[in-house]
């Protein structure tokens, strides 16, 4: 088992019914040797790498397509990263924006599970100049 530190953030999609509190309590209840910190978007977990991944997989069972995760470079409570220390770091805005997009990704995962076939629409092309000219002439 890898003892290397892994810090991971778990983020709940806006469409999921799971709450950060529920997620954190579920993880606590697992009784594993990892740290858990509830956040506004889900929670942060930290511990030996393999254990963190095991917990991630188990926690995801609450809502497999509604809970997302990525690793975080900084350990929990690292003052270099802490918002209280001197305001939000740039990555915070990014997380906010990705959180909004999770609705669509969640829907995509559900569709994939259902085996839905997705057809890629033809990309929109720019209007040929000759066509545009005609439109301009009509409107003159």
């Amino acid at each position: 088992m890898s003892e290397e530190r892994e810090t991971r953030l778990l983020m709940i999609a806006p469409t999921s019914n799971v709450t950060p509190d529920q997620l954190s309590r579920t993880i606590h209840a697992m009784g594993e040797r990892i740290s858990v910190k509830e956040t506004c978007y889900g929670c942060l977990i930290e511990g030996p790498r393999d254990l963190v991944r095991k917990v991630r997989d188990a926690a995801r069972e609450l809502d497999p397509n509604g809970i997302f995760s990525k690793i975080r470079a900084y350990p929990l409570g690292d003052p270099r990263r802490c918002r209280a220390h001197h305001g939000t770091r740039p990555g915070f805005s990014q997380l906010e924006m990705e959180w909004n997009a999770l609705t669509n990704i969640s829907a995509g995962l559900d569709a994939s599970d259902r085996g839905e076939k997705v057809v890629e629409p033809e990309p929109k092309k720019q209007l040929p100049v000759t066509e545009f000219k005609k439109i301009c002439e009509v409107n003159q």
């Binding site: 001197h86 305001g87 939000t88 770091r89 805005s93 990014q94 906010e96 924006m97 909004n100």
Partner: peptide, 12 residues
Amino acid sequence: KIVYPDVSAADI
């Protein structure tokens, strides 16, 4: 001390 004014994604 150096501080960063807080902004939310919606503000940007």
